[in-house]
């Protein structure tokens, strides 16, 4: 029996004037998945996230969280959602703890013990009683995350969460989100225009361009490309001997050589053929590796490399 999706978006559309900012977007996200919204700036990611939390009213279409419509049942639906939209802006004149208490008062059943728990979870114990205006961006990000986790949400929505974080901070956030999804079954939705980020963080990625859903990719399948061609790396004992074999067998193929590693582009069926030829010619093959084509290449291929239009 398939579980009901945590997040269900159906025909979500936002029109401003005659221009569709988000155009007939539909997808479902199950529990425990880290789901990415990927697209160039202005593609409609932030608008989509804002519609998911009721900051922007949809022109048509629906967003359901645990089966609850976020417009019709805002209070009940939002009880299951924690969100940071763009930057985690907090009240600078209040301390971190006062900020968390402020947001805790706004929903049901968040105790002082729970506040303590999330503060520990995000590792902010040392500075939680300081005023937020003295916080660095990384600390604000942690406080924002603590705020989003307060009411034990089933769905965590993060809009451009890595904005302004240093590489260590990005890595920490990524690991933390993955852990939450795996250990607590949290559904995480992140948006980003950073492709490499999404590759490392997400289970699935929806590619959006000009408000339209271009494709949804499962990250594990990303290596197998549409036309079945992949880049292969060979680890051999004698590169020049191997090169000669390849040149004889596959005419006109381009081989990049780096010490004893050869990189060439082949169709899937050609790979065993190549290995057999090399072994038959007495070359020692220590390893054959299909190189992943990065999402970036695919993303650029799919969206035609355009940025904003």
């Amino acid at each position: 029996m398939a579980l009901a999706p945590r997040v269900e978006i159906a025909h979500l559309t936002k029109r401003i004037g005659s221009k569709a900012i988000v155009d007939d977007l539909s997808f479902q996200i199950p529990a425990g998945e880290v789901f990415g919204l990927l697209g160039p700036n202005g593609a409609g990611k932030t608008t989509t996230i804002r519609m998911m939390v009721g900051l922007i009213a949809a022109s048509s279409g629906t967003v359901e969280i645990n089966g609850l419509d976020v417009v019709k049942h805002f209070e009940q639906a939002m009880q299951h959602v924690g969100a940071i939209v763009e930057n985690p802006e907090m009240y600078g004149f209040l301390s971190g703890r006062q900020n968390l208490r402020h947001f805790a008062r706004m929903c049901q059943g968040v105790t002082e013990a729970r506040i303590e728990e999330v503060v520990q979870q995000v590792g902010l114990e040392a500075r939680i009683n300081d005023r937020v205006k003295t916080y660095s961006l990384g600390m604000r990000q942690r406080l924002g995350l603590a705020q989003a986790l307060l009411r034990r949400p089933d769905v965590l929505l993060l809009d451009e969460p890595t904005n302004g974080l240093d590489p260590a901070g990005i890595r920490e956030l990524r690991d933390y989100l993955r852990r939450l999804a795996q250990s607590e079954g949290l559904t995480v939705v992140v948006s980003s225009h950073l492709l490499s980020e999404m590759e490392l963080m997400c289970d699935r990625v929806a590619i959006i361009q000009s408000g339209k859903l271009v494709d949804i990719q499962t990250m594990g399948e990303i290596a197998a490309t549409a036309d079945g061609v992949s880049e292969v790396s060979l680890d051999v004992d004698d590169a020049s001997a191997a090169n000669a074999v390849i040149a004889a067998r596959f005419e006109g193929i381009e081989v990049k050589t780096r010490e004893n590693e050869l990189v060439l582009t082949l169709s899937r069926e050609q790979i065993p053929e190549l290995v057999a030829a090399l072994v038959g010619a007495g070359a020692k093959v220590y390893g054959v590796r299909a190189l992943k084509r990065s999402l970036e290449d695919q993303f650029l291929a799919m969206t035609g490399g355009r940025s904003v239009d």
Partner: peptide, 9 residues
């Protein structure tokens, strides 16, 4: 944004 994305209408 924080204020309106809690549960209060």
């Amino acid at each position: 944004k924080m204020l309106l994305t809690q549960t209060a209408t």
